[in-house]
Amino acid sequence: MIVELLRKPKIINIGARNFHDSLIAQGADSVHVDWKPPAGGDQEMMKLLDKLDKL
């Protein structure tokens, strides 16, 4: 599987936008996730949501 990655990386960038911009500037295959803290950054609420997700 790593061999496939080394042949052709296809990237999902999550977080800092400028990394995505750099990838695009290099002609790489990249999409950007405009990440925001889940549950408004409330860690307890986040854990609850993750539990619900798994169900």
């Binding site: 990655l5 999902i12 960038n13 990838l23 996730v33």
Partner: peptide
């Protein structure tokens, strides 16, 4: 991330910052 993975099933690397 989930929506990106769903729309880009061929993706193979996630860069997290």
């Amino acid at each position: 991330l989930d929506s990106a993975i769903g729309a880009e099933p061929e993706s193979n690397l996630v860069l997290i910052s």
